[in-house]
Structure formats: structure tokens, C-alpha cells
Design a protein around this nucleic acid. Structure first.
Lengths: 191, 191
DNA sequence: GTCTATATGCGGATAGAC
DNA sequence: GTCTATCCGCATATAGAC
């Protein structure tokens, strides 16, 4: 729909993103994709090895979108403000692009090229975390933050604890993480 | 297999737990269940409305198992030690009972009775968190911790960041959370 | 009443003709 | 490259044997 594509791959992925937004991951089938594209279901196999390959490509696309979102959120803010903005952008992405986020989070065997999109996202996160936690603890702090955000997003999507206000819990955890991350860079009491 | 059951429901769930451990959630089908039990696939519908009902029952069973694990871990330890032990027990459960943990985490419409198992687990967690964070902030602190554990478990299962040692990140996040939770109970600077 | 047997419709995936 | 035709497994619904 969006634009006349040159390759079949891009046409297929564009249709897949449409159906993803419409009916979630379960609402997307090879048959429905082919039907929307006006081809036989089997023609898809000329461009993707199987359904998993399509999902992997969508996952990479999701990584690119999330990277763009957190990069824009960080902007040129101060380290702490940037991370707060990134965390909020992450939650917004998980909420508003739920289906793509779902595919992004799926454990799927990525091709070399698809994995690059995920690595680029991760590198940016670590880079931003390094600014407040320092080189030494950046990676573990980043993994910790990433895990927390993922968990909050999962709880929010599952609609559990709705009476416990996930937003409040989000702030509690984020503040706890920021305090610990900032402490990494403070001068130690004893060398 | 385990024991001669009186009701068909328990026999079916026992077989389901077996297949869950063997081949994960995807490896369990109504056909394979019936085959193992020596009955026709359709006989299962006498005891469960559909596959989702079986999964809901398994989810409740997972909640009971996890509750038993964290309760045992907490024991009669001090508040902080109890929560550390519970977090470790959670991770062990997610690692060693991966398939049951997966079903437990699934968003599925639970029956009244199945939901009780989840509520019991959650009540115990909040109870333990209250001991170190106090009544006022217990719920948001508990949700925050639960989200973090869920995220770490997800990252560990996805086998991402394996070079970044999830265990180290687990400690980083847990310490950050404990620091924040303990601070809730400290006397405020100003009333 | 409980299970067997069978049928429908949905997935993904493959083979071979054009 | 795309098609038609087909296979297999899945959940599900109905009808009938005992």
C-alpha cells in the first residue's frame, strides 16, 4: 500500500506489517498474506524460506523502529534525562506498536543481516547507559534496565496488576535503577 | 503415569505436565495427550472445554509450584535475605521448569479457581515485600521486582546477552531494587 | 452418559506443471 | 516465478456405537 516496491520481499513485509497491526501475530498467516498480495500462498516461498524467516525480518524491522524511537527520545539530553526519556519511549513503543514489539521480543533465529538491527539497538542503549554508569558497569546496568522494561511491558500487556498501577511501579523501578547506575560513577569511599 | 488418578482431569493434567517438560508448550497437542492416555482425542472435551482451558489449568499448577518454591526459599529468613532467596528461587524455577514457567507467564483467561492460585502467589510476594518496604509502597515495589525478574528470565531464555552475563545483571538490578525498597521504610527527612 | 469415528476448516509446507 | 494440487497436523464440532 505504502509505496510501489521493487522487490517482492519488501512488498511482502509491508503487507505483513499491515496485518500485524490489524490482527496481531496470530492474525497473520501465509494464506492471508498471499491473498492480500493477490498471489498464491506458495509464491511467498520464493522470497522467504518459511514463516520463521518472515518473522525474523519483521523482528529486525521492529528493532529499527525501536532504535529510532529511543534515539529520538534521547536527543541531546543530559545522561539521566536521556535515559528517562528512552525508558518512556520504550514503554510507549510497547504499548502503541504492541504487535511489532511482540515479534521483536520473540526468540527467533535471526539471519546475519537481521541480527545487525538488534545489535545496533543494543549498542545504542549501552552507549547511553555508559554515560551515567561508566564503562565498567555499563553492560550489566544496561541489561538490568532492559530486563526491567521488558518485564513491565509484559505485565502491562497481560493486564495483570491493573489495580496496582503499572505506571507507578515503572517509576519506582526506574528510579531505583537510576540511583544505582548513578552511584557507579561516584567516587568510591575507599579505593 | 505418576499415580492412579480418580478423576480424568488429573490424569490429563499429569500427562500434560509430562509432555510440557518433554517438548515444551508447542510439543503438547490434544492428539498427543489423548494418544498418551490411550483415548480418542475428542474424549478430552469431556473434561476441558478446549485447549485454552487445559493451558489455564497448567498455568494455575505453575503458580502453585512457584509459590511453593519461593515460600520455601523465604523460610524464616530476615526480610532482605528472604527476598534475595525468593529472587534466586524464581530464577531457578524459570530455568529448570522452563516449560511450566512459560505457561505460567502466558496471558490466558483463567477461571475463577485457576485465578486463585495466581492471587495466592501474588499475595505472598506482596506480603514479603511489605516487610522491607512498608505498607505504603509495597505494591509498587513488588510489581517492580516481579517485572524485573520476569525480564531477566526472558532475556536468559532468549539466550541474548550471553556474553554480558545475565547473572551479573541480575545482581545489579536486585541490589538496586533492594536499596530502593529498604529506603522506603527509613524515616523520612521531613514528616 | 461416555467414548469412538468422522468431518470441517484452519495452519504450514512440498511437488510438479506451465 | 507463479501456478494448481496435495500432504500433514492442528483444534474443533457433530453423529452414532456401546
Amino acid at each position: 500500500m505504502a509505496y510501489p516496491s521493487k522487490t517482492g520481499r519488501e512488498l511482502i513485509l509491508a503487507a505483513a506489517l499491515e496485518q500485524l497491526a490489524a490482527g496481531g501475530l496470530g492474525g497473520m498467516s501465509l494464506r492471508s498474506l498471499a491473498s492480500q498480495l493477490g498471489i498464491a500462498p506458495n509464491a511467498l516461498y520464493r522470497y522467504f524460506a518459511d514463516r520463521a524467516a518472515i518473522e525474523a525480518a519483521l523482528s529486525a524491522e521492529g528493532a529499527r523502529l525501536l532504535l529510532a524511537a529511543v534515539r529520538k527520545a534521547a536527543g541531546r539530553k543530559s545522561p539521566e534525562a536521556a535515559l528517562r526519556a528512552m525508558a518512556n519511549a520504550y514503554m510507549r513503543f510497547a504499548r502503541e506498536q504492541g504487535s511489532i514489539y511482540e515479534v521483536l521480543m520473540m526468540r527467533c533465529s535471526l539471519s546475519e543481516l537481521d541480527a545487525q538491527a538488534h545489535q545496533a539497538l543494543w549498542l545504542f542503549v549501552v552507549e547511553q547507559v555508559t554515560r551515567i554508569a561508566g564503562e565498567a558497569k555499563a553492560r550489566e546496568a544496561a541489561v538490568s534496565l532492559w530486563a526491567f522494561l521488558r518485564g513491565i511491558a509484559a505485565l502491562e500487556q497481560a493486564e495483570v496488576f491493573n489495580d496496582d498501577k503499572p505506571i507507578t511501579s515503572f517509576h519506582f523501578g526506574l528510579n531505583a535503577w537510576l540511583t544505582a547506575a548513578l552511584a557507579c560513577k561516584l567516587p568510591s569511599v575507599s579505593v
